[in-house]
Write a protein that binds this DNA or RNA. Structure first.
Length: 257
DNA sequence: ATGGTCGTTCTACGA
């Protein structure tokens, strides 16, 4: 199974790039974030024409997450599988594709450490952890895909000096990320590639992409059982090049399932 | 030069 995650930053704006990319890379499962669509506007028929079944969770023009699959898509859950108050945003969707429990998620940005949105982010991450604790074990074939809005280590940003008292690198966020690893997941990119300079997001401004001023904030966290079956893992920087790219690029992995 | 863009959408705001 060939699986990818991509924050597309508006599927309306990105559809030509997404369709071209699907034909070139031939993934079996794709997790998308920031579709910025309501469910009724999601182009399910266009994906069907390319061979993909899909599930989408979106309320309006903000956030929105989706899963595409050509190996089946079952047991779809939108939001968190708990009895708490529904999440205020459409940020997470779950589905079983080809025997793997796939999660597509868009973790809240946080904005600034003093912003209420930062507390929402930490609460959101804690709620994700509780969902794992309640419904899964590391022996399950499970992969948590998406835009975490967390750079887990200092090597995951181009210059730590630019991130004093910033979100994405704060200790509480990194602690939440480590909790996911300690629960029993593997950061597939970091496990395979120890070097720095590996990024998945570059601000549109100031030529950041060309100056290699990026952040590694999009991740594939595979359960230990699934990680044992992983093959190639790579960041597809080509998706950030060319005409009308998203500001995030693709992380992709292959699994022997 | 101390910013620079692009998405939502129509006026700032979020990333």
């Amino acid at each position: 199974m060939r699986l990818a995650t991509w924050n597309v930053n508006s599927l309306n704006a990105r559809m030509p790039r997404v369709e071209q990319w699907l034909e070139e890379l031939q993934p079996d499962v794709v997790c998308m974030q920031e579709t910025k669509l309501s469910d009724d506007a999601f182009p399910a028929m266009a994906f069907k024409a390319l061979g993909y079944d899909s599930a989408h969770h979106g309320f309006n023009q903000w956030n929105g997450v989706a899963i595409l699959s050509r190996v089946g898509i079952d047991d779809v859950v939108e939001g968190f599988p708990d009895d708490d108050e529904p999440d205020r945003d459409a940020r997470i969707i779950w589905a079983t594709c080809g025997g793997v429990r796939v999660v597509s998620m868009y973790v809240p940005n946080g904005r600034t450490l003093a912003d209420e949105h930062y507390q929402y982010k930490l609460g959101w991450l804690a709620r994700l952890q509780r969902a794992l604790d309640a419904h899964h074990t590391p022996r399950d074939l499970l992969v948590l895909c998406g835009d975490y809005n967390i750079a887990p280590g200092d090597d995951d940003v181009w210059d730590m000096a630019q991130f004093n008292d910033s979100t994405h690198v704060s200790e509480p966020e990194r602690s939440a990320f480590r909790s996911l690893l300690e629960w029993g997941t593997v950061d597939l990119v970091r496990a395979r590639y120890p070097e720095d300079g590996l990024y998945t997001y570059w601000d549109y401004r100031a030529g950041c992409f060309h100056k290699r001023m990026g952040m590694r904030i999009d991740h594939l966290l595979a359960s230990t059982a699934l990680a044992e079956r992983s093959g190639f893992v790579f960041i597809d920087r080509n998706a950030r090049k060319g005409t009308k790219p998203s500001d995030h690029t693709v992380v992709m992995a292959e699994f022997d399932v």
